[in-house]
Amino acid sequence: MVNPNTFLIVILVSLGISISIYSYKIGIGSINNPGPGLFPFLLGSLLFLLSLYKINIFFKKKRLDETTHVRLFFKKLFALLFLLFFYAIFIDLIGYIFTTFITFSFIFRIAGYKNWFKIITYTICIMFISYLGFTYLGVRLPQGLLKMVY
């Protein structure tokens, strides 16, 4: 199994390089007239150097990190992330009421509720209470499909 730290180091090195290159391109200016790229260029280079040092440490003490593997709950994690992204994509399209109803029915299920009657009751309750609460606070929630009805 690949140590998750390996992924992180690869990401940090790539981030350091790409930020440095991009900042250089937008112009680092000169020392008496610093350009918009100077500060990010310095940060990108520093990140790259620190990541290189981290690689050095990582290879030397690889065995130590192997003991730090953590138990992950991928199934629930991915399901929850999927629902959150679903909410972000569809809230404007189908509206607050429908998106909240669909998303939170499944989120209650992930949270540990088994009885669908309870799940739907709770979802409807929090949906309407939050709708009233946020509308009272002056938040304009998207109507989505309801726009076609009204």
Partner: peptide, 21 residues
């Protein structure tokens, strides 16, 4: 907690959306 978790998520999602719609 199984009741709190959806509530916290709902507040995060709607709260974040409400900043600029």
């Amino acid at each position: 907690y199984r009741m709190l978790m959806p509530l916290i998520l709902l507040f995060c999602l709607v709260g974040c959306y409400a900043i600029n719609n």
